[in-house]
């Protein structure tokens, strides 16, 4: 995996910050993987920095593994189209989520809930899936160095080129 940052282009930025399900993975020292759901994403204007919002109580070992300096992977998928993108980073930084982040998490929850409501999922499920946005959260920041198309099909796994 290269060290060079991969600047997400406009379409990719729009996609990862849209109505997508987000999961982030890391690993422990013994190669044991960890996984957690993220509730919202923000990308820096130049497309080089990605921030994900993780409710602490729901983040299991991901936060501990990232603190230990492990690399990360994050996958974004749009339920309506199955369009899926995976980003990888060599390491990640953790920070506390403040008022602005909380606002973004709630905005994400609204959009994601609307996206899922179109599938006819019931109220109990829709409320449950976004409920963790009200919990204490951390911001996980990383610089993507690789991106992969993971939309189901023969093209899945194709690396996407860095735009420089």
């Amino acid at each position: 995996m290269s060290e060079a940052p991969l600047h997400l282009d406009r379409l990719q930025r729009g996609f990862v910050t849209g109505s997508v399900a987000i999961n982030v993975a890391s690993r422990g020292a013994q190669g044991v993987p960890s996984i957690a759901r993220a509730y919202g994403c923000r990308v820096s204007a130049d497309g080089a920095e990605v921030a994900l919002y993780l409710p602490l109580a729901f983040s299991g070992n991901v936060v501990a593994d990232v603190r230990g300096g492990a690399p990360v992977a994050a996958v974004f998928t749009r339920p309506a189209t199955h369009e899926t993108l995976q980003l990888k980073g060599r390491r990640a930084e953790l920070g506390a989520a403040g008022v602005a982040e909380r606002k973004r998490m709630r905005a994400y929850a609204r959009r994601f809930r609307e996206e899922l409501a179109a599938f006819g999922l019931d109220e109990r499920f829709l409320s449950g899936i976004v409920a963790p946005v009200e919990l204490e959260a951390v911001v996980l920041c990383f610089t993507p160095v690789a991106a992969f198309n993971q939309t189901p099909g023969p093209e899945a796994g194709t690396p996407l080129r860095a735009k420089g």
Partner: peptide, 10 residues
Amino acid sequence: DGTPNVAYLS
């Protein structure tokens, strides 16, 4: 090499 991977399952 220690790189994590995350994907969706059908």
